[in-house]
C-alpha cells in the first residue's frame, strides 16, 4: 500500500495468537527492506521476521526478555544502516538500546532513565 492509494495488496501470512504483537518495523539486515520484530506479550519471546516485500523469508528467534521490559522504539542508532531496538522498563523507565545485526544483538547500551511514564517515546 502506497500513500493513500492501494498500489498492491499482498497477503503476508497469519499469526493467530493475539499474544504475538509486531513491536517494531525497520530494515534490520541492511537489504533496504523493512523487517518485523515480533514479541510475545506474556512470555517475552522476541522473534525477527526477515522480509522481502510481503514475503517472510526467515523467522528467527532473537531472545526472551522479561516482560517488565517493553520495546518502545526502533531506528538506526549507530548508523550502520540496520535498525536497532529501544527498550524501556515499564515501571522504572530505564532505557536500553540493542544494536542489531539482523536477528543478532551485536551489543547493548544503557541510555538513561525517564522515570515519568507520562513521557512516551514518539513513534
Amino acid at each position: 500500500m502506497k500513500h493513500a492509494a492501494h498500489a498492491t495488496d499482498a497477503y503476508v501470512g497469519v499469526v493467530g495468537d493475539p499474544n504475538w504483537e509486531i513491536r517494531a518495523q525497520g530494515d534490520r539486515n541492511g537489504d533496504g527492506k523493512a523487517d518485523l520484530v515480533w514479541r510475545h506479550k506474556r512470555d517475552g519471546t522476541v522473534y525477527y521476521w526477515q522480509m522481502d516485500g510481503a514475503t517472510p523469508v526467515a523467522e528467527l528467534f532473537v531472545a526472551t526478555v522479561d516482560v517488565s521490559y517493553d520495546i518502545v522504539g526502533t531506528g538506526d542508532f549507530d548508523g550502520d544502516g540496520k535498525a536497532d531496538i529501544l527498550w524501556r522498563t515499564i515501571v522504572a523507565g530505564d532505557l536500553w538500546v540493542w544494536l542489531m545485526d539482523g536477528p543478532v544483538k551485536a551489543s547493548e547500551a544503557y541510555l538513561g532513565i525517564v522515570a515519568d511514564q507520562a513521557y512516551q517515546v514518539v513513534r
Binding site: M1, K2, A10
Partner: peptide, 18 residues
C-alpha cells in the same frame, strides 16, 4: 525497498496484509 512507506495490516484473525 522503493523508499516509500508501506502499510502493514493485521486482521482480527491474525492475518497480515501489506
Amino acid at each position: 525497498g522503493d523508499f516509500a512507506s508501506d502499510t502493514l495490516w493485521r486482521g482480527s484473525g491474525g492475518d497480515l496484509w501489506l
